[in-house]
Design a protein around this nucleic acid. Structure first.
Lengths: 201, 201
DNA sequence: TTTATTTTGACACTGACTATCAAAAGCTTG
DNA sequence: CAAGCTTTTGATAGTCAGTGTCAAAATAAA
């Protein structure tokens, strides 16, 4: 979801200003990436567009790639995964979460999401950096599944399922070159159904 | 496998010299990484140790990360995957290949492999860069499976299986923190068996 | 040996990222 | 509101990865 959907408990002016600065940097960065391409856009340009100093940019985002990759999807998805009805199998629960996520997205969210995905799979640096996210997500899924099933998060069976889920998700998400990206929800759902059925050929 | 195991059709002197230079760079790089750590080692140092200029380094390896990631495992593994007995299911075939690979490794290969893995999962930049390799590998697996089953490499079911295989492999390979890494072969085999059985919990 | 091609090193450059430090802005008391 | 404290910011000056260019050296071919 875009920055707009964060509750952002409006405490002091400082917090609000920080949130605004962060959002401004991200928006201008994504706009510039869209207009000129990722490589052609320097951090200096982003900083200038967002009216901050380059130093400040790096204070908000550790790397240029992080401007693209940082969103708060995972957190919401993981909570949702933990809260799925207990009778669902791990894969079914994950599938339900995915469907839920797509259903709850506003057109704006969808557009922002598409842009992020586009960059993630187009720009090598970003795509590479996404690996860390996937590793982290695997851990989180394993943890959520462990909580659901009352097993240890380190359990190899659990980690295995988490790995398979991520792998299938990646495979279903990546090769959307050219296709109408609206199908993403459908395609992911079909892929997960396939996994649930034991990957028959 | 280490650089030593490549057949390296010894054509002209040029080819041989190139191969030697490449090997020298990689060896010195890995040694320096081991001794001083990845970050503390600059390309300039590697170049100096290998007795070439920094320019030459980049002529052989597009990035510093590639020094770690480039090996010729995949090629061999993919050929092997295509050549597995036709009666094996895709997962069983992949499993057989994995077992074969581990069995065929010399202690030297194993040591080199361990070092590569170590760096891959330790150094964020390298780990991130590994994403590209996995994406490429997914494609290759999909292609090999397509060849085996006579289906289209773009077939979503095929890509799905490839994704699940990669995901499970990653999950089984990654969290080897602390464990005796000799178990890697066993652990991967168990994970694949688990996938083959439909990921029961 | 002479000629063509490839490989190499020196140099200069861009751009991401870090460290430091002083100035400014926001918060908190009296 | 004024004085003092903390956080945020910007300027500056670096390091290092990676690119482009070009002439010199090494190798292959004639």
């Amino acid at each position: 979801m875009g920055e707009g959907s964060a509750p952002a408990k409006t405490c002091g002016l400082r917090e609000r200003k920080k949130a605004r600065t962060r959002a401004a940097i991200r928006e201008h960065a994504l706009r510039l990436f869209r207009e000129q391409g990722y490589h052609a856009t320097t951090v200096e340009q982003i900083a200038e567009a967002a009216e901050v100093s380059p130093s400040t940019f790096f204070r908000y985002f550790p790397t240029k790639e992080d401007v693209v990759l940082q969103d708060d999807f995972d957190v919401i998805a993981m909570d949702s995964l933990r809260d799925q009805p207990a009778h669902l199998s791990p894969i079914a629960a994950y599938r339900a979460v995915a469907a839920e996520m797509f259903a709850s997205m506003t057109p704006d969210d969808m557009a922002s999401f598409r842009e992020t995905m586009e960059l993630t799979f187009t720009v090598p640096e970003v795509r590479a950096r996404a690996m860390d996210e996937f590793a982290r997500t695997t851990d989180q899924i394993a943890e959520a599944l462990a909580a659901r099933t009352g097993r240890d998060p380190g359990d190899s069976a659990i980690r295995n399922v988490a790995g398979a889920l991520i792998g299938v998700t990646m495979a279903a998400t990546m090769p959307w070159t050219g296709d109408p990206p609206e199908d993403l929800a459908e395609r992911l759902d079909a892929a997960l159904a396939h996994l649930e059925a034991g990957l028959p050929l």
